[in-house]
Design a protein around this nucleic acid. Structure first.
Lengths: 199, 199, 199, 199
DNA sequence: TATGAATGAGTCTTCATTCAT
DNA sequence: AATGAATGAAGACTCATTCAT
């Protein structure tokens, strides 16, 4: 009946955040469909009922989780590029770093990743968050190129493509290795393409 | 005690196929988790019980659907390349054709695609079918290059990357267009990369 | 994920007990295989769902029922001997009393008995509860004999046999009277055997 | 709709018997509730449908099985006593033999036994067959005593009790051994009681 | 605000029995 | 007489959500 309440008191906000944090963590670990609302309540240290005062439904918790943590999980480079004021001596190095960060991160939160990818294919809201985050990364790299006086045609499109290639590669390395592909070679080729692309 | 029955009579085989066809269609349209076994029975025009004589469980129907239709749905090029004995005058044309086929197909079976991608991120069996189908395509292209006397280093890896790029592009065009990306330009860039890659 | 909850609140405990009581009653009356979970929920005045918060499955309800009522149902003498500090003037009297109690009880909860016996032949857990309860009774009688300074060889084995004889007799009297057997005579013989046995 | 047909042709009778034999065997082995009609059809080498032309329902197959095989399964002594024209030098020997036969038989068809006992507690028809078979055995022993000029009071009742004691003992030895009971001792006591009883 | 017990519609699956061939 | 494919009601169990306290 009553609408979701947005808590104003400090303790309430903390509680809401805790639900998002712990609930999201659990969902990522075990999969959205394998976790029940009471499970979320339990790991968050709250009662089942209270959840429905902070969130309209189970999905909203997951969505909020994505909103809060997508940067770190999906494109860790966004964070990295944010913190460092990057001067590029050579692009190759940047993209190697990028790949390392992606792979490392994929490996760390395997389940979270897969769950996010799956959801992004089923749920428009999730997909949009994904898209936006990815675009942030594109923008950051555009700016880096700019601030390094690297002028190329159609930078947005090219970077966009480059990120896609890197993502594909990283994802595959972590999950779905083809036994007929040599991933050392593939990595070299990936970097070569990307570097060529941005010259 | 009793295992799944593999029907031998013509009518039974038809029925089994109908379940796969209609069930798969429905699952693709509405999502695996939103469709119940009775739903599948209904659209297939059979009773609930018979389903469990032909399939061990709900998932198997979906899996069979994928096996039967993955070529067409996921990599329509596999089919195309199978039928034509392709002589390449220029690679550009081949990849343009490939992109057109992908995009067209994505557009036709939007939901099916998304559902498949989602499942492939949650279910190993699905992922494997996907992988295998994708590898078939890679192999086909390797052969085409061979039979056209195009010699490149690391063909498997390169083609693999190329397919990934094209897929990404097509998928995005159909579903998740970024408003800041010009997809005409992007297509040109994609083809340029791919063609360069295979020279 | 979540396990069975053991209720702490008074009302919950009452509810749990009600399920055991009413559910067990119904199962005993109609037979385990003829009663569904919703049936149990209905007679207990609860919803289907709550049952699975208190019990892992249907069988557990039955098992708990047995645990709670086995003493009374299966070996009412256990209860009787528990309460009274029995001094035996003559054994004959004790066993007559025992037989009366058994027969009376068999008669009261006919169906329950049969169901229990049936289950004890199909289900190890049930059989074990049965066995344990029966052994309690054996022990009690051993102690009574002891405290009355009746020394016999192999008391456990003999009492065990005696209980079996009495049980057989009672059961038959209540359910499966042979028309060629005179049960007055049989009772006398039974008591004679048992008394002789424990001398 | 149509009533059960009692086959008159030789082949049909054979088929009916095969269903009883194989079906009963399977039920005994795996348990009545764990075997489906198609299962029975399969082991009997017939089609599902035909079963319902020979039997009204699943239970009838089991019942017929019991009728045909109860002697052998439940009271193997009935058969043994039938064949041999027994001269008793000493009763002790007879009952030892009886116990051996019972135990051996229990051990051989463990599952069958348990299933039969369970059913006999739930189903009046089964119980009656059981009862009748048991009475046959009683009669046989009465006759043996007679023909050996052993005169006792209330022979039917006493033998009945004796059979019960022996059955209890055998059943327990095979299935539900109490760890506090010494079964060597118990056997001696059982025989002592029985022999005394019939003196 | 908060609790956590309670709800009940919904899920997958089984199986005795029927029926078209 | 025989087949075996087909039926569909019924069963055990789950879980997002509500509600009494």
């Amino acid at each position: 009946m009553s609408a979701t309440r947005i808590p104003t008191q400090k303790r309430s906000i903390e509680k809401r955040n805790k639900i998002i944090e712990k609930g999201f963590e659990l969902i990522c670990e075990k999969g959205y469909h394998n976790i029940s609302t009471p499970d979320i309540a339990e790991v968050s240290g709250v009662s089942t009922g209270i959840i429905y005062q902070y969130f309209t439904d189970k999905k909203e918790i997951f969505l909020e989780g994505i909103r809060n943590y997508s940067n770190k999980i999906m494109f860790p480079m966004v964070d990295i590029l944010d913190k460092e004021n990057i001067k590029i001596d050579n692009l190759e190095k940047l993209f190697k770093k990028m790949i390392r960060a992606f792979v490392k991160n994929h490996t760390i939160s395997k389940k979270a990743h897969e769950e996010l990818m799956a959801m992004s294919h089923q749920d428009n809201e999730v997909a949009n968050i994904f898209k936006e985050t990815e675009f942030e990364l594109t923008n950051k790299i555009v700016l880096i190129l700019d601030s390094n006086d690297i002028k190329i045609k159609n930078p947005a499109e090219k970077i966009h493509i480059a990120i896609g290639i890197i993502e594909n590669f990283c994802h595959e390395v972590v999950y779905h290795k083809h036994h007929k592909i040599d991933y050392e070679i593939m990595e070299k080729e990936v970097i070569k393409i990307v570097v060529n692309l941005l010259k």
